[in-house]
Amino acid sequence: MNAFRFLGDMTHLFSVLVLLLKIYATKTCSGVSRKTQELYLLVFVARYLDLFTDYISLYNSVMKIVFITSSAAIVWYMRRHPQVRRTYDKEQDTFRHSVLVAATFVLALIFNDRFTFREICWAFSIYLEAVAILPQLVLLQRCRNVDNLTGQYVFFLGAYRAFYILNWIYRYFTEGHHSRWIPWIAGLVQTGLYADFFYYYFLSWKNNVKLELPA
């Protein structure tokens, strides 16, 4: 465990908890893409299949349980909670995320470490995570006014994968050259998708104005 990876896990955990807290405290989910949250739940379920089979460490198991339960809680709030679900921007959140699921699954069938159920699910979860933010970014551009908690949520989510890329660089030089091109390419794509968001987020922070994404 190196500092980059730990920082990455903490910013990832923080982003999910910020979102869950925002929804729990304000009982609204306007500006939040339910489709992105559903994709993240699928990412965690597909990746953490080994939760009950392989014990890596207490930290690893606890974090997996926290990620799965918190993203399930967010989806539950947005689908079932009577007060929250009313504030969901159903008409705005129109990204066809089923296309993302199908495309990344096909990609995982072609590009994987080993053609086994576990490995295909793992590669699927890595590819899907790289594009899962798309419905949320589209929704932010439509909603224009990004409330700062949602803005912070997306920011931390982008920062987490950026830390993971530093972690992979660190591990590359310290632990030798394992085949990790799958997370490498997906991680770069994922962080790249945030690039313009980071740019506007930084501008809004620098000029101390509300975050406005160009249409």
């Binding site: 990876r5 896990d9 990832h12 080994d50 890596i56 460490s57 690893n60 974090m63 997996k64 990620f67 470490d113 793992w122 993971y164 972690n167 591990r171 632990e175 030798g176 394992h178 085949s179 990790r180 799958i182 997370p183």
Partner: peptide, 10 residues
């Protein structure tokens, strides 16, 4: 096994 080194990540 070394091959699974990446799989110890979240």
């Amino acid at each position: 096994p070394a091959a699974d080194s990446v799989k110890d990540e979240l």
